[in-house]
Design a binder for these strands. Structure first.
Length: 130
DNA sequence: GTTGTGACATTAT
DNA sequence: CATAATGCCACAA
């Protein structure tokens, strides 16, 4: 017996189906998921830069995508977003912003000194270590 | 389709 | 130290 469809029915593309079937917590794209995985393995007491995270995820030159990926992290995912900094170990958020203060607070709570919105180079991980 | 923007980086000046 | 130019590309308007 052939299936019957409503006149307004339109089949979903493969991508749409995959997205619909997957729980909301899963990544929206392979690239985003790869980035999340890298971020997840930055240990307490250390940090990584947007660029290095991208590189370690197999996405050289895509630092901005790391930013996008972090912006999309569901709060209940418990990803150490605060361990990701701008080039040279600089907190990217504006000095007075709540985000900036929160990130600095979290880092210090893990033993990473933050002075003048920056962390020591010794705390920064390279793509190799990731 | 085009344009502007952005949790960025690198290189040059 | 600072600023600008350029590359990058997802996303929204």
């Amino acid at each position: 017996m052939a299936k019957r469809f409503h006149p307004l029915f339109r089949p979903l593309s493969a991508a749409q189906e995959a997205r619909a079937r997957r729980p909301a917590l899963a990544g929206q794209s392979p690239a985003i998921e790869a980035i999340w995985q890298v971020v997840q393995r930055v240990p307490r007491g250390r940090v990584a830069t947007y660029g290095e995270v991208a590189r370690a995820a197999g996405l050289p030159g895509r630092a901005r995508l790391t930013g996008r990926a972090l912006r999309k992290v569901p709060p209940d995912m418990h990803l150490p977003w605060h361990r990701i900094l701008g080039a040279g170990g600089r907190i990217v958020f504006a000095r007075q912003s709540p985000h900036h203060r929160e990130q600095a607070r979290l880092l210090r709570s893990e033993g990473v000194p933050v002075k003048d919105g920056r962390v020591p180079r010794s705390a920064i991980m390279t793509a190799e270590e990731l």
